[in-house]
Design a protein around this nucleic acid. Sequence first.
DNA 1: TGTTAGTATGGACGCTCGTCCATTTTATGC
DNA 2: GCATAAAATGGACGAGCGTCCATACTAACA
Lengths: 238, 238
Amino acid sequence: MGLLIQSNFDPKEQQINISITGNKRQRLKQQNQLTLIKAALDCIAELGVRQTSVSEIIQRAGLSRGMIHLHFGGKDQLLIAAGHYASKLYYDHLETQLLGVNDCPQKIIEAVVRSDLSPAVLNQHNVNIWYAFRGEARHFKDIVSFSDTRDPRLRKLVSNAYQRLAIQNEALQPEQARALAKEATYGTLCLMEGMWTDYLLHTDSFDRHKALRIIMRFQAALFPAYFNLDGAIPTKDQ
Amino acid sequence: MGLLIQSNFDPKEQQINISITGNKRQRLKQQNQLTLIKAALDCIAELGVRQTSVSEIIQRAGLSRGMIHLHFGGKDQLLIAAGHYASKLYYDHLETQLLGVNDCPQKIIEAVVRSDLSPAVLNQHNVNIWYAFRGEARHFKDIVSFSDTRDPRLRKLVSNAYQRLAIQNEALQPEQARALAKEATYGTLCLMEGMWTDYLLHTDSFDRHKALRIIMRFQAALFPAYFNLDGAIPTKDQ
DNA sequence: TGTTAGTATGGACGCTCGTCCATTTTATGC
DNA sequence: GCATAAAATGGACGAGCGTCCATACTAACA
């Protein structure tokens, strides 16, 4: 069974399967749903929310007008499903990056940051989509949940790693260690967010290497024993 | 003469005066323009871009339908003018905060951060507006310029202050000092951006004191001689 | 192979959008 | 106080929106 994404449409099928399974009929249905989701995301990325219309989506999907209503109940629900899908892609990439990492806290944190800044995740397409949803987040409650990179999953992953580093420092009281870990988590995630905004507004001059270096610097300042700046070498080109 | 904001409407009057001056006729005109701008911002903050329509704006402004076209040439140009106005308010607040500060680099940087995090600037209304514009930034070129907190003005202000701190450190080569100042500027601005995103997505649990403290911590790590964590006391409540 | 039920189609619908302009109002300067 | 031009008004307009549904298709199963 594949991962599921939520839809608010038919209560009987509140979840739409993202993986393509079942007999031919089910496969075609799921394929069309995915096509619609991807078309919607392309639309948002290229044209923005304001210009993303049902006509635009179905034209890109090459499917018929009625399918949005049929499969998602309406345009808004399709957009919500698309948001969940985009969020899923973010975490899918993170998980693949975490696979090659042993249980070492520094490596986990580094993998999170590297994944967040990697070209596969941090690119024009995704940044456009993310900020488009966030622009509507406050007025479209369902969107908040997935427009947050730092949702509880990610936060907990990073927080746990920092906790483990902090308690290794015998000079700190347990409570001090907890406080340090909290601040490190907050700062790291804020920096990651800030980098995305930088990418949105200064795409042409954005430098992944520099971005990674700044975050490493912050970590090195809080945990001098565990991080050094030499790690700040990009995984791939630009 | 007051500050001016740009409009793309009539080439003969490419700028719309924000200050209220001149005879009665001019004052009324400027007042109505400002009313429209404020109504548009309220709309965006409360309803989002998607629901911000001409009808909604003029209803809130209590003015007639045709005024948007008359004064701004169309809805989009009004929104652009509104964006410039919002940006102006940000810098106006910053300037008042800088007035009481002498030429000390640390104090300047602290004033920038405190202003950015102050309730007068970082609040639901403004965050909604800022992210609404950013959501359209990529597809609405005119918007990029003012949706950027870190526009050249702010960047230069912070950068110059850090430069002055860095060159005071005699242990650093001039080039190292420059690099340090650049990283400090980048990191500080990214953290500020990250805090705004945190506010957007976690308004209820957002803590200005904690946010300020993290930024101070980053600064203290890069300039241990000039920043300490005790400065992290909020100017007001919340 | 025939029946059925799940899926797909695309046009019609009512509605709201932003624009524009003929008309009215009103401050200004002679 | 009158003539003038600037500013304000609000309804009409066509275009485009999202929704919905009568109809057509087709995979599944007996």
